[in-house]
């Protein structure tokens, strides 16, 4: 079949303009499926016809459109129904941001609580550390003190005098360390009952048969440094009223010991 002369026969134009009879139309439709050139020729004429018609348009009175929109009003889909896509998208976004806000707020509370408890724990640790540090300092001081005490006790110039209980049935005990060079007196309380709140122990040195005040005894760890005593034949401790007495109350003597 000669496609070219078929295309030029006018049958395509007749078909497009709706003037072809049923048989011609069926034949052309059949052929157009087999031959792209025919399909193209149909399309070209259609496009040209459309362009011409659009260029030759005569605008109808505007009332016609209004009338049509009224006539077909019930057949249009509701315009709102074509919008849910955009609106739905917005709603999902809004919902998502609210959820994010709530989650964020909850996390804020959670993290703040965490922060507070961590901060408190840190403060507690800081206090504990300071306490431990202070304790450590104390212990170091005491250790140094004990060390120097030990150094002193082992000094050959130191004379050691044991003061033992003066009354039968008691086993009170104290020890005097007396530096024979500097004449300093140190006292270690080995065992003495706790003094009443208004009472205080007092150390006496017996010099030439007479008691000389050698100092009040405070609670001291290890060795208590007492008054300097140049010479003494004996040391004794009495329990006196707080602040001490000018002369010892003899019946309150707890311990005593001779020098040498």
């Amino acid at each position: 079949m000669d496609i070219k002369s078929y295309i030029e026969s006018g049958v395509i134009e007749s078909y497009v303009l709706g003037m072809a009879d049923t048989q011609e139309a069926a034949e052309l439709e059949q052929l157009s499926r087999q031959h792209p050139e025919i399909r193209k020729a149909i399309n070209d004429f259609e496009a040209a016809l459309e362009q011409h018609a659009l260029a030759a348009a005569v605008t109808p009175p505007f009332q016609i459109k209004e009338q049509l929109l009224i006539t077909l009003a019930d057949e249009f889909i509701k315009e709102e129904e074509s919008r849910p896509v955009a609106f739905g998208w917005f709603r999902y976004m809004a919902a998502a941001s609210v959820i994010l806000l709530v989650v964020s707020a909850a996390l804020n509370v959670y993290f703040y609580t965490q922060f507070r408890s961590t901060s408190n724990a840190y403060q507690a640790l800081l206090v504990e550390k300071n306490t431990l540090f202070a304790d450590n300092q104390n212990i170091q001081t005491k250790a140094l003190e004990l060390y120097s005490n030990m150094q002193m006790m082992s000094d050959p110039a130191i004379q050691k005098i044991s003061l033992s209980a003066t009354k039968a049935g008691e086993n009170n005990l104290a020890t005097i360390f007396w530096d024979s060079k500097s004449k300093d007196v140190y006292l270690m309380l080995n065992k003495l009952p706790q003094a009443a709140p208004d009472k205080q122990y007092q150390l006496w040195a017996i010099v030439d048969g007479k008691p000389v005040d050698a100092g009040m005894i405070d609670a001291c760890a290890g060795l208590c440094k007492m008054k300097n005593i140049p010479s003494a034949s004996m040391f004794a401790i009495t329990l006196e009223k707080k602040g001490g007495a000018a002369s010892p109350t003899m019946d309150q003597m707890c311990v005593a010991g001779k020098v040498g």
Binding site: E50, L54, A57, L69, F76
Partner: peptide, 18 residues
């Protein structure tokens, strides 16, 4: 779509009217 019907009318009513 009424919107597209309106579009169709605006674009082709003149050509068809002629």
């Amino acid at each position: 779509s009424s919107h597209v019907f309106s579009y169709l009318y605006d674009n082709y009513s003149g050509a068809l009217h002629s």
